[in-house]
Write a protein that binds this DNA or RNA. Structure first.
Length: 422
RNA sequence: GGAGGGGUGGCAGAGCGGUUGAAUGCACCGGUCUUGAAAACCGGCAAGGGUUUACGCCCUUCGGGGGUUCGAAUCCCUCCCCCUCCGCCA
């Protein structure tokens, strides 16, 4: 959420940034509403002040045995008026909040301006495309031959997009998750958490899934709970409505979770195999940091996510999203894309974002500054470190042998207990 | 699911219709003392909003919402959460 004061004070700048995102909002309506709200609030405050003074006087009169019936009669009218004004003010406030909660974050000044993903900027790449002495197969062909997963039976149980991992596939999935969690803990000191996989409306609103993206989530009406689309939701909400001591920052959390996405409106896109799923596994990294440090933390977060791909020896590139491709809550974002030689495609396995105070404001996540003891919003960041389905695709396709067997990268071998899958 | 208890400032914990935005303790900040530190003593210390060039002033907030009242942390209704016991269950 961006503060209304920022809209009042930096209207031009904010409008431009929305334009760069390809969005437009009726700022006039916001400003008029805001003015109306403040006018009402001022009137209300004056009346309440009057009431407070009168009530105290009545109390005093009562105690000293004086008659206060006339004052009480008068205050009855004032109270009635206050109630009416309160209703109006609350209604205006709700209207205003409803608009603010639907406004996207403002891109950081360093973000390249562009309309869509074609304007994203490749920042760097790592490794090289593997050379095969044969035509590389797709992960579907390889995995099916090796009995690693079964999409037909997964669909029988739940529908398409719900993969059933089997045998070495199931074990490899578990190995990857364990490997990534261990790596982030031992290399970078992340605190591992195992969060709930469902979350309530407040939690979903903090991170920005609600109110705009309700359609994208699975939800249990009877319990008013959503299945989480990412561990970002529960983990960011760990510190909702809290004031953290500055000395506790930065806080680094890692979490495995299953992720559930309805992918409404994307049918027919990437329907093959593991490229787009309704349920998948992911290790998520979440940081709570001071405002001054958040952009340095974004760089290190990205590097930490990258290190997973490096250790596994996978060719990848880092792409900086342009303004038009930036998500609702993000102020700046790097995507990690891994090379899948069978698909001959770059696959997004991670998005590393700085949300600045956008989520912190929604979730009221604050810290007490050492320098002046004042309270301020933290900055939150998160990135996948990384998502398994496309990682699995890249792994199978990169490490395939001519006979369809798969070599397991050395760091992963102890986790899987195998040097190769055949 | 049934019975009972409870949710108050950064934390602990009083208050149970009228200077209570809230005692007290801890934590924190400043000062005195000390060679330095600790202890002791003195002082300060909630957040949000509005208004003001500023000092300041005003309003709101004691789990959420609603009600009673001139006036609610305090009374009533309702919802949520936590704890204890019983039942059920991985």
């Amino acid at each position: 959420m961006i503060p209304i004061s920022a809209i009042r004070e930096n209207l031009k700048k904010i409008q431009e940034s929305w334009k760069a995102k390809g969005e437009e909002f009726d700022v006039n309506k916001i400003l008029i509403l805001d003015k109306k709200h403040r006018d009402n609030l001022n009137q209300l405050n004056e009346l309440r002040a009057e009431r407070n003074i009168a009530s105290e006087a009545i109390g005093k009169a009562r105690r000293s045995g004086d008659n206060a019936t006339e004052a009480i009669r008068k205050m009855k009218q004032v109270s009635k008026h206050i109630k009416e004004l309160e209703k109006i003010t609350a209604d205006l406030d709700a209207q205003l909040k409803n608009i603010l909660i639907n406004l996207p974050n403002i891109p950081h000044g360093s973000v390249p301006v562009g309309a869509d993903e074609t304007m994203n900027v490749e920042i760097r790449d790592w490794g090289e495309k593997p050379n095969f002495g044969f035509t590389p197969k797709s992960h579907l062909e390889l995995g099916t031959q090796l009995g690693m997963f079964d999409f037909q039976r997964g669909a029988k149980i739940s529908g398409s997009g719900f993969p059933l991992y089997m045998n070495a596939g199931a074990r490899l999935e578990r190995a990857l998750i364990n490997f990534m969690l261990d790596h982030h803990h031992s290399e970078y000191g992340y605190t591992e958490v195992f969060p709930p996989f469902v979350a309530n409306k407040s939690a979903m609103t903090t991170t920005g899934q609600l109110p705009k993206f309700a359609e994208d989530m699975y939800w249990s009406q009877t319990d008013e709970l959503y299945l989480i689309p990412t561990a970002e939701v529960p983990v960011t909400n760990i510190h909702r409505d809290e004031i953290l001591p500055e000395d506790d920052l930065p806080k680094y959390y890692s979490a495995y979770s299953a992720c559930f996405r309805r992918e409404a409106g994307s049918y027919g896109k990437d329907t093959r195999g593991f490229l787009r799923l309704h349920q998948f596994n992911k290790v998520e990294l979440v940081k709570f940091v001071t405002p001054e440090s958040s952009y340095d933390e974004l760089e290190s977060l990205t590097a930490q996510a990258e290190s997973i791909l490096q250790v596994l020896g996978l060719h990848y590139r880092v792409v900086e999203l342009c303004t038009g491709d930036l998500s609702f809550a993000s102020a700046k974002c790097y995507d990690l894309e891994v090379w899948a030689p069978g698909e001959k495609k770059w696959l997004e396995v991670s998005s590393c974002s700085n949300f600045e105070s956008f989520q912190a404001r929604r979730g009221n996540i604050r810290y007490r500054r050492n320098s002046d003891n004042k309270v301020d919003f933290v900055h939150t960041l998160n990135g996948s470190g990384v998502a398994t389905p496309r990682l699995l695709v890249a792994l199978l396709e990169t490490y395939q042998n001519a006979d369809g067997s798969i070599l397991i990268p050395e760091p992963l071998q102890p986790y899987l207990g195998l040097k190769e899958i055949r």
